[in-house]
């Protein structure tokens, strides 16, 4: 029974990673850049939700939407000010700029909210469900997280395959020049991608802090790196890949903590990643691109 418990907890953590990884993977797919500031957008989202509920007395559910709105605007501003001028130049230059943005967000958050950790009150109020005579407990957070990630996944899938903007996004990530020739506004499409990714980051931030209630300026960086790993694991640029990668990463992490060694769980997770990449160099669901001479 403890196996099932670990599995459920693992999927729950993995679902949060998956939502963050979606942001990484979409931005990478379309703009071919590693957006290292994404983890910090999560942190900002969590702080906005925290401030809305604690200082303004907004109901928890509404605070998520406020956080999403703020993060969407933040994502568009970051993209327009810091990334857009560098489009088409070295990807390393954009990477360093992203790191600069990450430092900026962390330190701005520290100025505004202080360095001392805040105690994030969970947005879920329902009591945990007890099954099999108390052997298996599923908290409300776990259910909400899993449901939310499933809904987001489906919505994104629908969005990218059925709507006009979604199709434009796929076209731009396939071949930017050809898409531009077909009359797609590449800049606006990339901005939209950043907006969606940042809104997802806000949801991830609230869900993450509902499960792990300490909120501080560096809250986003470690889950950010984990989710980035998850995106690569599943094949960066692929939306189902990010979902699969995130959930697998969460499950592997929980299992290695439970059964193998808690102190080496980090090493085990990264070792699995390396092995997967050596066997499948483009990740689990990534496309293997043949290099042309």
């Amino acid at each position: 029974m403890s196996f099932l418990q670990y599995l459920i907890n693992g999927i729950s953590i993995g679902a949060v990673y998956a939502i963050i990884a979606l942001g990484y993977t979409m931005v990478y797919g379309i703009a071919k850049m590693l957006n290292f500031a994404h983890g910090d957008v999560i942190m900002v989202g969590a702080y906005i939700s925290f401030s809305a509920t604690n200082y303004l007395g907004v109901p928890a559910v509404l605070s998520i939407f406020i956080a999403m709105a703020v993060c969407t605007i933040l994502g568009i501003i970051i993209e327009g000010l810091a990334y857009k001028p560098l489009r088409g130049t070295s990807s390393l230059a954009v990477l360093i700029t992203a790191i600069g943005v990450s430092y900026f967000l962390q330190n701005a958050a520290q100025l505004i909210w202080g360095a001392t950790p805040k105690n994030f009150t969970s947005i879920v109020t329902s009591a945990p469900i007890s099954l099999f005579g108390g052997q298996l407990t599923i908290t409300g957070e776990v259910i909400i997280t899993i449901v939310a990630s499933a809904v987001i996944m489906l919505a994104l899938h629908f969005f990218t395959t059925k709507t006009k903007i979604g199709k434009a996004m796929r076209a731009v990530s396939e071949d930017r020049d050809a898409a531009q020739l077909m009359g797609i506004n590449v800049n606006r499409t990339i901005s939209t991608t950043f907006a969606i990714g940042s809104a997802l980051a806000a949801i991830a931030g609230v869900l993450l802090c509902s499960t792990v209630p300490t909120l501080q300026p560096t809250t986003g960086s470690m889950p950010g790196i984990r989710a980035f790993t998850a995106a690569v694991f599943g094949g960066i640029g692929s939306i189902p890949g990010a979902m699969l990668g995130g959930i697998l990463l969460g499950v592997i992490e929980t299992f290695s903590k439970a059964y193998l060694s808690s102190q080496f769980s980090d090493a085990i997770v990264f070792l699995v990643l390396i092995i997967v990449l050596l066997v499948k160099p483009a990740g689990l669901l990534g496309k293997q691109v043949q290099e042309k001479v």
């Binding site: 790993t229 690569v232 960066i236 080496f264 980090d266 990264f270 990643l273 990449l277």
Partner: peptide
């Protein structure tokens, strides 16, 4: 970028050890 992420992973493994 895959090379980048694996060097990141190895760095974290070394740190963990």
């Amino acid at each position: 970028d895959y090379l980048a992420i694996v060097t990141l992973a190895f760095g974290e493994i070394l740190k963990n050890i």
